[in-house]
Design a protein around this nucleic acid. Structure first.
Lengths: 134, 134
DNA sequence: TTGCAAATTAGCAATTAGTGCAAATAACCT
DNA sequence: AGGTTATTTGCACTAATTGCTAATTTGCAA
């Protein structure tokens, strides 16, 4: 995801308006590697801007995702997680504390069973115990 | 997942009862590689046993999953999919028709970023277009 | 076989995550 | 500064799933 300033320009160029609510979310998401959910962002945003609506948080997350600034990921934990790191990478989810870490693949796996299936995207999810919990 | 007959024994051994509803679901799931959802199993079950409750389908799927006979997988499609293939494998999801195919990894990928994270399980999801849709 | 304790079914209410809608408000181009 | 257009909010609504409970069924044991 680009910086709040760059997003301000990008939003205006796309005919979208830059509101205080959106600027706050730009800031909360920039360099955020916690893989937050809409709900957790809503809590963080409410601390700085009491009264902000959960609906607005969802709306802005959807806008950012549509613009390719954010990746929406479902780990089967109930709620979608949002990742401002849109480079191709994977995730390690700690079964103990729920923390989600970024993982990079240097060499792709070799496969069987993909007869004729043309792969456009792949995502690996590792589960186990993180360093802090071990 | 084991055969309906073997599951009958396993359920009784576990103190669980074997009802016609459960036997039907054992049959519908055995050798089923379609990765069905609770809802699609409910539709299939209703055809053979009108009046069966969706609640019962969910309950039996939960029981089978708890017993390790079934794997529950969330592809972010809204509903959970159930897989009677509990061997370690991965999935390819067709973005066009939604079909889910099994994929086997011969050689694991090489990684960075997993500092101290001890991996217990991994699951790769491929997205793209299946042979039938291409 | 029948009886009975324990498990199950079915139905409906409740919950969680997210979206649709419309009135009031705010942004920003000129 | 003004007006058009997007945005915010709040509320109702959907989809998937779980909680609860009365009525029923299973399966051991006599």
């Amino acid at each position: 995801m680009r910086s709040p300033d760059q997003l301000t320009v990008a939003f205006r160029n796309a005919g979208l308006k830059v509101t205080p609510q959106r600027q706050l979310l730009f800031r909360l998401l920039h360099n955020n590697s916690a893989h937050p959910t809409a709900e957790s962002l809503f809590v963080a945003a409410s601390a700085e801007m009491p009264g902000i609506s959960l609906r607005t948080v969802y709306q802005t997350l959807t806008d950012l995702t549509d613009m390719g600034e954010l990746q929406s990921i479902d780990f089967g934990t109930g709620a979608s997680h949002f990742d401002p790191n849109v480079a191709h990478h994977h995730h390690a989810v700690c079964d103990s504390c729920g923390a989600i870490h970024d993982v990079y693949v240097e060499e792709a796996p070799r496969l069987t069973g993909l007869d004729g299936f043309s792969v456009e995207h792949s995502h690996i999810v590792y589960r186990g115990t993180c360093a802090a919990c071990a």
